[in-house]
Design a protein around this nucleic acid. Sequence first.
DNA 1: CGCCGTCTTGCGTAAACCCGCAGCTTGTTG
DNA 2: CAACAAGCTGCGGGTTTACGCAAGACGGCG
Lengths: 240, 240
Amino acid sequence: MKVLIVEDDPLHRSYLHEAVNAALPECDTVIEAENGTVGEKLARDHKSAHIVMDLQMANRNGIEAARTIWKERPETRILFWSNYSDEAYVRGVSRIVPDGAAYGYVLKSASDERLKLALRSIFIESQCVIDREVRGLQQKSLGQTNGFTDSEYEILVDIALGLTDRAIAKRRGLSLRSVQNRLQQLYDKLDVYQSAGDDHEDGRFNLRARAVTVAFLRKLLNYSALERAEAELQEWLEGK
Amino acid sequence: MKVLIVEDDPLHRSYLHEAVNAALPECDTVIEAENGTVGEKLARDHKSAHIVMDLQMANRNGIEAARTIWKERPETRILFWSNYSDEAYVRGVSRIVPDGAAYGYVLKSASDERLKLALRSIFIESQCVIDREVRGLQQKSLGQTNGFTDSEYEILVDIALGLTDRAIAKRRGLSLRSVQNRLQQLYDKLDVYQSAGDDHEDGRFNLRARAVTVAFLRKLLNYSALERAEAELQEWLEGK
DNA sequence: CGCCGTCTTGCGTAAACCCGCAGCTTGTTG
DNA sequence: CAACAAGCTGCGGGTTTACGCAAGACGGCG
């Protein structure tokens, strides 16, 4: 059995290496990659079926890498090992998991035990293991309770990118008014009005910009999500 | 000699601990804190004069912590050890350094040697040591060449927070028009027009929102900067 | 001192944004 | 099938943005 580790921090990488050795005696080879690009390449070359992947990496982040890896070989098992449980990451990951694939999401703050257990569960037992903290977000974000629907999230990303209403309408195939409806809905859920109107006529917020900031502060968005969205946008702009 | 380490990742913390031991034989005690709040407390209790500090920490980030520490004891020597060289961080740090204080900024990706050298230079020789990569940003951001002036940066933060033009005017003591002037200036420097007008009538950007995103993608802004700015804003809102 | 560049401010306008109102299309449920 | 909730759309209008134009204000500098 072979395991591929994709992680850009050398300290964490060697820690993972040790953890894999300890948790998986049946593993005879461990390969390491220090960023997403190298990770993809090694995964391809070695036909890796077992991968531990960091999410936030400078060169090419874990979500991107995982997507292409899964595209080529959907039965690959991937354990995401991340510092953060931002909703943006969770959403990003669950968006790309192939049907029925075994994967995991464990926080770096988890104990040794948790990590080792997760390694065995995913790689040996083909089970999905998702940290409690992450799980909470996932339910909220996918179930509709209190969380955001896909269309709301979509529009959030669009205004975050700085598109005009009209541009969004064109991109998503909607009328201007529908876009604005969704915006209102978004503003509502993000509680942008709250502090806006409270001290009467004076210090009002620009709803559109405020919504983006609030989303950021709530970790609904983060740098990597923006980066991905921007790339998609550019792609769309190419295709007229 | 005593050294205080403030760093939330246990792996990095123990790595630092070792590095300090190796580089500073004259150091007899090493104290550790796992977040900014604890760091401030320990610094106060131990009257620490030598601190190694991570920037990005969950509870209270390094810039906040350093600010209060320096406020109480400006001659404290602090080495910032960070994963990132975002302009937002660099700007944040150089904004709070007391006059003539010895401090350093070293990236986590630097070699063992670099780190140890920096430790000695700052703690023993009272010199400032700033990594090459970081230095570049610093010059750009403080010198005016190509970079952003303080007033531009200020307004960038204000729109990022989601304030209206009017609110900004009030906050900064300017007229509406002046605020808008600065905005134009900002849009200009951020190159927001570029992709905006290229295929003219079709896919235009919302300049205000776009500017914020571009700033984010260029690391002019980041989460921690936003967080700080938001706190300041709330404070200002209190004081009417 | 007069000239010039930078910064500020007011006026005015076209465009974009926010949103209430109301008519339509769907899918769901009793 | 009627009833109802949910989403899309057009219309209309009040507010905010973006920005050209032009008139001061302030600070060097020859």
